[in-house]
Design a binder for these strands. Structure first.
Length: 314
RNA sequence: AGUCUGGUUCUUGAGUU
C-alpha cells in the first residue's frame, strides 16, 4: 500500500490527474493517505469543485483531509470559504491555523493575520516564519524582529526556509548590511538563498554586487534570470536588459513582463508593443504595463483601445 | 525505514496596516 501511495503522491506532485485517477482506481486497497494524495493533486491543479466532490466521496476524514480542503480554498478559493471551513472543522491543529494565516497574508490582510497569529494556541517554526514574512512585507521592522526573537526561543532549530525568510525580510526592510551578515553566517544555502541575496543587492541598487552574485551562482533558474533582468530595468540599464533577455536560456511570463516594463518605462512603446505581441501568453501585469506606458506618454488613443480589448481588468 | 495538508525568492499599476 505504501508503494502504491508513493507513486500516487508522485503523480500528485506532478499534477498528472489522468494517471493519478487511473492509479487510484486500480489500487487493490486505499487508505486515508491515498485519498489525501488525491486531494493534494486537486490543490496542485487548483480545481476547487472537483476537490470538493472528492472530499465528499471520502469514507472518512482525518485532520490532514480537513487541512487539505482548507488549503485548497486558501490557494484557489475565497477567503470566506477558508474561514467558514476553519470554524466548521471538527479539529484544528497548528497547520490549520497557519493555512488560514497564509491565506490572509496572500490577500494582504495583515491585521487579521496578526490577530489569528496571536489567537492560535501554539506557534511553531512554520507559523512564525509565515508571520515574519508578513511583517517584513508590511515594512514592520519591530514586529519582524519580535517574531525572530520568538523563533530563536523555540525548541525547533531554524531550517533553510526560515533563514531564507529572514534574509529576504531584511532585504525588504532595506537593511542590506544585515543581509550580508546573515548570508555569510548561513551554513547551508540553496537556490532560493542565492536568488534572495541577488534580489537584495538589486533592490539596494548594488548592481555590481548583484552581477557578481549572478556570476558566482552554480545553478540558476527562471527567478535568477528574471531578478537580474528586473534589476537592470529598475536602474534604467535598458541595453544590458535587452542583451540579457536575448541571451536567456528560458523565459517565463515574469521575464517577459520585466522586459516589457523596461521598454515601456523608457518610452519605447513600439518595442513594447512588438514584444507584447510576441509574448506566448499575457496576464494582467502585461496589460497594465503596456497600458501604463501609453498612459505615461499621453497616448490616450492606444491606451483606450488596449483597455477596451483587455479580457481582465482590476 | 519509505507515502497524504501549512511557512521563504523574480514582473505592472492602484490601494492598505
Amino acid at each position: 500500500l505504501i508503494s502504491w501511495n508513493s507513486i500516487l503522491s508522485a503523480y500528485a506532485d506532478l499534477g498528472h490527474l489522468e494517471e493519478a485517477t487511473h492509479l487510484f482506481e486500480a489500487m487493490p486497497e486505499r487508505d486515508l493517505a491515498s485519498w489525501n494524495s488525491m486531494l493534494a493533486m486537486h490543490i496542485r491543479i487548483g480545481d476547487v469543485e472537483q476537490g470538493k466532490r472528492f472530499f465528499d466521496q471520502m469514507p472518512h476524514h482525518n485532520l490532514i483531509a480537513w487541512n487539505s480542503m482548507l488549503s485548497l480554498f486558501a490557494q484557489h478559493g475565497h477567503l470566506y470559504q477558508v474561514l467558514c471551513l476553519f470554524y466548521a472543522m471538527p479539529l484544528r491543529d497548528v497547520v490549520s491555523w497557519t493555512v488560514v494565516i497564509s491565506a490572509q497574508i496572500h490577500r494582504r490582510q495583515f491585521q487579521e493575520a496578526r490577530s489569528m497569529f496571536l489567537a492560535m494556541p501554539r506557534h511553531d517554526l512554520a507559523s512564525c516564519t509565515a508571520m515574519a514574512a508578513a511583517c517584513a512585507d508590511a515594512g514592520d521592522l519591530d514586529r519582524f524582529e519580535q517574531v525572530l526573537e520568538e523563533i530563536r526561543g523555540q525548541q525547533e532549530q531554524l531550517d533553510l526556509v526560515s533563514w531564507n525568510t529572514i534574509l529576504n525580510g531584511y532585504s525588504q526592510l532595506g537593511l542590506i548590511d544585515e543581509c550580508k551578515i546573515i548570508f555569510e553566517k548561513m551554513l547551508e544555502r540553496d537556490l532560493v538563498t542565492w536568488n534572495v541575496i541577488l534580489a537584495a543587492y538589486a533592490r539596494a541598487g548594488h548592481l555590481d554586487d548583484a552581477g557578481r552574485v549572478f556570476a558566482d551562482m552554480a545553478e540558476r533558474d527562471q527567478v535568477t534570470w528574471t531578478a537580474l533582468l528586473a534589476a537592470y530595468v529598475a536602474n534604467n540599464m535598458l541595453d544590458a536588459a535587452v542583451a540579457l533577455f536575448d541571451s536567456m536560456p528560458q523565459r517565463h511570463l515574469y521575464t517577459w513582463n520585466a522586459m516589457l516594463a523596461g521598454y515601456a518605462r523608457n518610452g519605447h512603446l513600439d518595442q513594447a508593443k512588438n514584444l507584447f505581441d510576441a509574448m506566448p501568453e499575457s496576464d494582467i501585469f502585461a496589460w497594465n504595463t503596456l497600458l501604463g506606458g501609453w498612459g505615461a506618454m499621453g497616448d490616450v488613443a492606444n491606451a483606450q483601445s488596449l483597455f477596451d480589448s483587455m479580457p481582465i481588468r482590476d
